[in-house]
Computed example of a mutant assay.
Amino acid sequence: MNPNNRILFAGDPHGNFKPLVAAVQEYEPEAVVLLGDYDLDKPLEYCLREIADITEIWWIPGNHDFETPTKYKNLFHSALADKSLHLKVVEVAGFRIVGLGGIFLGRVWYPPMPPKWKDKAHYLNSQKINNKSVELSLKYKSAIWHDEFQALKALKADILVSHEAPGSHRHGFHVVGDLAAAMNVKTIFHGHLHENYSTVIKRHIHVHGVANTAVANLRGNTLMNGNELITE
């Protein structure tokens, strides 16, 4: 195996898992990491049943995964629910990978503006004045919360996988690069923006955007772009 193919990173499937399945069957990586936006009408393990015995499967959530109760349940209550990398560092195929799922939401925190709420409890307590049984809606569950984001800075990792992009992209956020630098991350992979690209930001951190239904390896090389298999 090419060592760069030990881990593959899959851009937003939006319901089309065939390119990822084909890439895993071709390269047989030790692990795959999915970068969000699955649009699941069935549980995630069903969509990936063809590769479950070939590779480890890890994921972070995207904004689409909170759009409906069905999409949410098919991810967060799937048989692969414990394979979420969101807000944790996990050793995967010899690399420490940290996940940051969800999106920046104006009603919660939209950098560089200060956060609207200190944390989820602050928000929920403010809502309980008229409703004692208030819970986070799916929209608020999709948000990146400032306190959870800041807590990650105390950890160390080799790779950051995020749904949102760092400031390397015109629609990205510089705070994502700041997080990576604080964690001594060397490489960032992100989805969400449906674009394949590679660049370098401060601290010599390599950034790889992975387009929807595309699959990239550890070097950021695109191995699958839609249904097109790209030979190395």
Rank of each mutant, 00 (worst) to 15 (best):
I54H: 09
Y197A: 13
D119K: 09
E26W: 08
A52P: 00
M183W: 01
R6Q: 12
N130M: 08
V92H: 01
V175A: 08
E148G: 12
E56G: 08
D119Q: 10
A22P: 00
E148V: 04
N184R: 14
P61M: 05
N131E: 07
L80V: 04
T231V: 14
V207A: 07
T213Q: 14
F9V: 01
T222G: 12
D12P: 09
S137I: 03
G11R: 01
Q25R: 13
E45F: 13
D65A: 04
Y197R: 13
L40M: 09
G172W: 04
T231F: 12
L179V: 02
K73N: 14
L155Y: 08
H174T: 14
H194C: 08
E28Y: 15
T187Y: 00
V215P: 07
N125W: 00
I57W: 01
L80D: 03
A151C: 09
K141T: 14
G101V: 04
V175E: 11
Y72H: 12
A23E: 10
F9K: 04
Y197M: 10
E91G: 06
L20P: 01
F149R: 12
I103T: 14
L223W: 02
N225M: 01
I7D: 00
F66V: 12
N2V: 03
N225S: 02
P13R: 07
A211L: 02
N221I: 09
D41F: 05
A22G: 01
Q25L: 11
V175R: 10
L179N: 04
I205V: 04
G209D: 08
V161I: 13
G177R: 04
L34T: 12
K71I: 11
H171F: 06
Y123W: 13
D12L: 07
F189R: 00
P111N: 09
Y46F: 13
A154Q: 15
P166K: 00
A181G: 12
A52K: 05
H206K: 15
F149P: 01
H146I: 01
F66T: 15
W145Y: 08
L138Y: 11
L40C: 03
A157T: 03
K156H: 13
H77Q: 10
H77W: 11
H174G: 09
L8E: 01
G220S: 02
Y110Q: 08
Y27K: 06
F104V: 05
G177I: 08
V33T: 05
L80C: 00
